[in-house]
């Protein structure tokens, strides 16, 4: 029905990415956060949070094409799947990486400082966001973005 689907898969509109990439990344991220939740407080939980922090950081700073799980998807997963049929703008998933970065940082900081309840809350929220993205294609950070703008943005009237 949409013009997107009728486009040749090999030539998506300029700048768009395979929509399955961020979805795959969200699934990996959800698994990582689930393991962290089950192992708090431990060295393994801290190490996994560092890994996740780096992954989010690369995605947020360099873009989703450089997000390690995205690279893994492109190199190892996508070639085994069919051609992509859905493409999306990389800006929303990149923003989601930045939001994830904040939660991973808070979780790691809390864990290191011994504030275990805070770590549970931060990692629990990060897991919720990654799970919603993977299971329902729902971007929690993106939805919060307009609400935040509404609350904090300038008022002219």
């Amino acid at each position: 029905m949409t013009t997107l689907d009728s486009r040749p898969a090999a030539s998506p509109a300029a700048g768009l990415i395979d929509a399955r990439g961020p979805r795959f990344g969200a699934a990996v991220t959800a698994v990582v956060y689930a393991i962290v939740l089950l192992t708090i407080p431990s060295a393994l939980a801290a190490v996994l949070l560092v890994v996740q922090l780096v992954a989010h950081g690369l995605g947020a700073v360099l873009g989703v094409r450089s997000q390690p799980y995205g690279v893994l998807f492109r190199k190892a997963v996508a070639p085994r799947l069919g051609r992509p049929t859905e493409f999306e703008d990389p800006a929303p998933p990149r923003f989601a990486q930045a939001v994830g970065l904040v939660f991973a940082a808070v979780g790691l900081g809390a864990l290191v400082l011994g504030a275990t309840p805070v770590a549970y809350v931060a990692v629990g929220l990060a897991f919720a966001a990654a799970f919603l993205n993977a299971a329902f294609n729902f971007c929690l950070g993106c939805e919060m973005y307009l609400i935040g703008k509404r609350l904090l943005g300038p008022r002219t009237a």
């Binding site: 089950l38 549970y120 629990g124 799970f131 919603l132 329902f136």
Partner: peptide, 23 residues
Amino acid sequence: MTGIVVLLVVLVAASAFGLYRRR
């Protein structure tokens, strides 16, 4: 133990929200 509880609560709540939102 706490982690399992948090994990399950989030899974149930997020699934309920996701299904509601999808509908």
